[in-house]
Design a protein around this nucleic acid. Structure first.
Length: 302
DNA sequence: GAAGCGTGGGT
DNA sequence: TACCCAAGCTT
């Protein structure tokens, strides 16, 4: 196991990306913002938004002082705007409950809105050097191949994966810290989901998946539908709301929302009309607190 | 535990 | 083109 530690750590030290939230001296807040943005979103799309965000709101209290609408607009087209909502809520909580300081323990972080098991472990590890057990989609995939001999991990995280991550983690604070980021980076750059670069992998000779002859996945991932879904309509509505300071009349959504045609609905075999779906999608946004209804229209929450 | 939640680039 | 997938979280 120690040989594997050394190989992967050495690979990381020579191949890591120069990401701004990894640079020396970055704050816990900077790491936290990056982790929220990186939830289900690729690095290349996060980079410019993170730069602007940190320039405008260098500390939690700066964001907490702003209305939610500003966070949602700055979030732009990153996707999953509820992440911006939760990041804003977390900033308020940090300001009021933690004197503006991002908590450093995994347990405290875990209680913040939008912070799950992964994000809590990641912030504690990357920002504060805690030897937490970090398990993200990259690490799960590396583990599945390197130790499990499988093409892909199970669709959802299992307790056994956390147990194994804990077992293979090297002793020592700094050692665990380096190991976590190294395995994650290996999964992101070499041990990728599609067309992994096994020929340039530092642990090719140790890989159980290679030894087994690279068997195919034991299941077929089910893709997420998009065209004609509520999510598409919600996204279109949010895009309009971000563009307008004043309340937007509901009729605007019915005329300007060119996400799909009635013909597409017929093709999809939907019994529901586009109008009905838009009403429902808007109701969902209102319920989620991502939009607010006023007498003269709908706007982003303040 | 499954479902719902945005977006855009790569293959 | 259509589908896959990207440092997940919440209900």
């Amino acid at each position: 196991m120690q040989q594997i530690h050394e190989k992967i750590n050495h690979w990381y030290l020579n191949n890591q990306r120069d990401l701004p939230w990894r640079r020396p001296g970055v704050t816990g807040w900077a790491v936290m913002v990056s982790e929220f943005m990186l939830q289900q979103t690729p690095v290349v799309r996060v980079l410019p938004v993170w730069e602007e965000w940190m320039k405008r709101w260098p500390a939690p209290e700066d964001l907490a002082a702003e209305p939610l609408s500003e966070a949602l607009k700055a979030w732009g087209r990153l996707g999953y705007p509820r992440r911006a909502q939760r990041l804003h809520a977390a900033a308020v909580e940090i300001t009021t409950e933690y004197n503006g300081q991002v908590p450093q323990t995994e347990a405290e972080l875990r209680r913040l809105p939008g912070v799950g098991d992964y994000t809590a472990a990641a912030i504690a590890c990357f920002a504060f050097g805690e030897p937490t057990v970090v398990v993200d989609t990259n690490i799960r995939r590396v583990q599945a191949r390197l130790f499990g001999g499988m093409a892909l991990p199970e669709p959802s995280p299992r307790a056994s994966e956390f147990a194994r991550a804990r077992e293979v983690q090297p002793a020592g604070r700094r050692e665990a810290n380096l190991w976590n980021i190294s395995v994650m980076e290996l999964g992101a750059l070499v041990c990728t989901a599609r067309s992994p670069k096994c020929e340039s992998c530092p642990v090719f000779d140790d890989c159980a998946w290679i030894a087994a002859g690279k068997p195919e996945p034991h299941y077929t991932p089910k893709g997420q539908a998009w065209h004609g879904t509520d999510r598409q309509v919600r996204g279109a509505i949010m895009a309009i709301l971000r563009e307008h300071e004043d309340p937007v009349p509901e009729t605007t959504f019915l005329t300007d929302l060119s996400t799909q045609t009635h013909a597409m609905y017929v093709a999809l075999g939907k019994l529901e009309s586009p109008l009905e779906q838009r009403e429902r999608a808007l109701a969902g946004l209102l319920k989620d607190g991502l939009a607010v209804a006023e007498p003269d229209g709908v706007r982003l929450p303040s």
